[in-house]
Structures are given as C-alpha cells and as structure tokens.
Amino acid sequence: MQKVSCPNCGAEVTFRSPALPSRICDYCHTILVRSGGGIEQVGKAAVLPFDVSPIQIGTAGTFDGRDFTVVGRVRWGWTDGSWNEWLVLFGDGSDGWLGEAMGQFMLTKERPLGDVQSDPTIRAIILGERVPIGTEAQVDGETFIVSDAREATCLAAEGELPFTAITGTTIYSIDFRSTTGALASLQREKTLSSFYQGRYVTLAELRPRHLRAIDGWPMPAYGT
C-alpha cells in the first residue's frame, strides 16, 4: 500500500495494489498514474452520474472461496444505456471485474489473448473486424455465442484501475454467452484487445459486506 498526496489538490490518495498503476483522486477527480517513482497527472475524470447501484468502493465479498474488495469502477455508456464495471482486487493481488447491468451481476477475469486467439472469430475481432450477433467462438472446447456487440464510451471512472480510463475513450465491446451460463467479453481499443471470461453471479452468493446504503431500502444481511 502506498499513500501519496494528490499533486493537484493535495488530498491523500492510496494505491493499494502495485499492479494497479492508475488512480483517480476521490476529491478533485484528477487521473493519476504511477510511473517509476513519481506520480503523473494525465487528465480529469468526469463526475460519475448518479445511480442506485448497491456496490461501492470498499464493498467486500467472496467469489469461489476467495475474498475480494472493490477498489475501482469504470462506467461505460452506449447508445441504449450504460453499465458499471467494478474492479475487484483479490487477496493474491490478482484482479477481476464485477459487471453490473440490467440489475444482474457478472464476474470475469482477464485471460491472456494467447489462450484464446487460436479461435478464428476471436482472432478476427482482435484484428479489427466486426462480427454479427450469433457468431460462434470456441474457448477451451466450450461454445460461446456473440450475444451483443457495440461501441461503448467511458463515461466516468473512480478509484484504482489497471489502465488509464480517460473519459470519452471509445471501445468496441463484444459480449459472448455460453449455454451453461458462462460468459466472456472482448474489448478492443484501437489495436489493443483484452479478453475476459467468467460467469453470472448473484449478489447473495458473493456474501457482500459494506454494500452501499440506499435511502428507504432495507439492506440485505448477506455478509453476516
């Protein structure tokens, strides 16, 4: 854990994981990036639009027997809505994304492209092609089907992140679903692609603690 002062406003900012180079100041929303020994300012993040998400930075839980804490978030928007990707940090220092859309949750972890790019569909997307909904891809012998493909824009971000989430950055995002409830997504920003794989989860199964309190709604006692 590293604590520094925000070079812009002077507020204390904490870097919890050495693997997460990017941090958005909680007070002035300046995007800070650690490089070498110093802290660099790379712009300002937009203020997050209000939502009634039950998740917040600091929400902790358990996924497949491993404890995690939510340390960051990116909010993505597209023509027909927006969704949250919460960055979760596991005890071993690895991270994953808790996606939140349409009141449902998905937990995915990044996989090296080398694991998956032998599939022609995935390789085509990485190389810059667009694929229609319904296209199939094989990952580890399992069939995944493209269920959605869209341009998404970074609306805002907060906390710690593995990349610099500049507001307004546009990516091409493809969602895959398998028939067993497994899911994957491929996100391409210019020529850089990342592949994430995971499954749907329920809030209850994550046994979350420190959920966000929302006025007038009783908070479920999952973590106890």
């Binding site: 854990m1 919890r16 917040q56 600091g58 404890d67 804490t69 940090l89 005890g91 220092g93």
Partner: peptide, 9 residues
C-alpha cells in the same frame, strides 16, 4: 489477503 487489509469504507 494482506492486499485486502483496508479500512471499511
């Protein structure tokens, strides 16, 4: 889980 040693929000 040392990396998770963080204060409650």
């Amino acid at each position: 889980t040392a990396a998770l040693e963080m204060e409650a929000p």
